[in-house]
Design a protein around this nucleic acid. Sequence first.
DNA 1: CTAGCTGCAAAGGGTTTGCGGAATG
DNA 2: CATTCCGCAAACCCTTTGCAGCTAG
Lengths: 147, 147
Amino acid sequence: MDHWDAMEVLKDVNLRATPQRIAVLNVLKMLGQAHPTAEEIYVALKQEFPAISFATVYNTLKSFLDAGLLHELRFGDKASRYDLNTQAHHHLLCEVCGDLIDIYLPEVDVAQVLREHEFAMSGYHVEIRGVCKTCREHTLHKADTHL
Amino acid sequence: MDHWDAMEVLKDVNLRATPQRIAVLNVLKMLGQAHPTAEEIYVALKQEFPAISFATVYNTLKSFLDAGLLHELRFGDKASRYDLNTQAHHHLLCEVCGDLIDIYLPEVDVAQVLREHEFAMSGYHVEIRGVCKTCREHTLHKADTHL
DNA sequence: CTAGCTGCAAAGGGTTTGCGGAATG
DNA sequence: CATTCCGCAAACCCTTTGCAGCTAG
């Protein structure tokens, strides 16, 4: 996970190690907690691959999604964001600036509800909405929030 | 909440009680846990208002969202779903049939994480992914799920 | 009466797809 | 070398917007 070989990661999931895919992985790794959109990835790749197209970015992301290398996050706004972090984690979403912050929570107790509904869980995600520190300092107040 | 007057609900949030809006509210109320998409609402309204357009449906939903009458839910698939239920509740999302089931969970302990990040929460939502009872019975097995 | 709404059509933004040519394993 | 992938462009889908006429309060 630390000295990280993109080619190995790709081989592990049976995807061809093309330069573009390696670059996408590295961009995702590098941007880390930034949860980039397809466009942000595209822009980052443009430097190394001036000829790259959106189609390639989306194709690549789709391959990675199918392979389980990353997660797709969608919120009220338009564009999907992509998250390489595979550890169980959750998100704070700032409704002012749109920033997305990774958080780690104690396990939520869902056993009862799963039993009730006879539902086989593969995972869960907690999304907390509100206003981040920076935006609160700038706007100074906002109604109906309870810290 | 039970003998339900759509006109009153609209008046309460300062929206004009037009026939279309009343109908949208009633459709949402009727479809209840079905979490319809804009298109499903449109189709349901078509019967009563053959001339209705998507624009009206989206405009109406937007008004309701701004007024806090409903929530917009987005998942991996394309279209947003709309949820009239304003009580704090969460969702089971079946990855096979796409069905969305309302659930009620004990409160998640987020105080620590909010303090850490100095984040002012306005709400949170837990989404549990997996396979619902019906789909499990039909497919009979699925890997990497832990009940 | 008049602010605000409807319906139409067209545009918008993000994502997907078909195809010929190129590169991987 | 066969398969898979890339890049281009066009298509697609969901959603939004501008505008003219209508309607609720």
